[in-house]
């Protein structure tokens, strides 16, 4: 083994240990995370850490094809996060904790648009408005 190989071997071992620790910390946030967006952020971070693992394995084994795998994993992680964001938006306020919100913030939280709400008030004519006044 040359000096260069020894340097890289030690660096890769150390980095694997550090990545394991950060992986476990992130998994702890996924388990604990009080709300769904917390978990989604942690899962996004988890994808990043796994990409780091793949890069380290690429260095260790010498197969540079792993770069393509890492890029495609990043693409899948990005799409998953976007899909989760759409899901959170369409799911509405369910699960959001109440009570410890900032006051100015609570006053301005818009009702998320839902189809059922649109169905309930089927029109905006004078009859509906009169009903709303009562």
């Amino acid at each position: 083994m040359t000096v260069a190989q020894v340097i890289i071997s030690y660096a890769v071992w150390l980095a694997l240990v550090v990545l394991c620790v950060s992986f476990l910390l992130t998994v702890w946030r996924v388990i604990k995370g009080p709300t769904l967006p917390d978990r989604v952020v942690a899962l996004d971070m988890l994808t990043g850490i796994v990409i780091g693992f793949i890069a380290l394995i690429a260095i260790r084994t010498g197969f540079t094809l792993y770069i393509d795998i890492a890029i495609s994993l990043g693409l899948v992680g990005f799409l998953a996060t976007v899909a989760f964001a759409r899901f959170i938006l369409s799911r509405g306020n369910r699960g959001a904790p109440k009570g410890d919100m900032m006051k100015t913030f609570t006053a301005s939280v818009p009702e998320p648009r839902r189809r059922s709400a649109a169905r309930r008030s089927s029109g905006t004519g004078p009859a509906v408005r009169r009903k709303a006044k009562k």
Binding site: N93, A96, M101, P112
Partner: peptide, 9 residues
């Protein structure tokens, strides 16, 4: 999305 739905700061 989280802000619009109302997750607190």
């Amino acid at each position: 999305a989280a802000h619009k739905v109302g997750y607190p700061l």
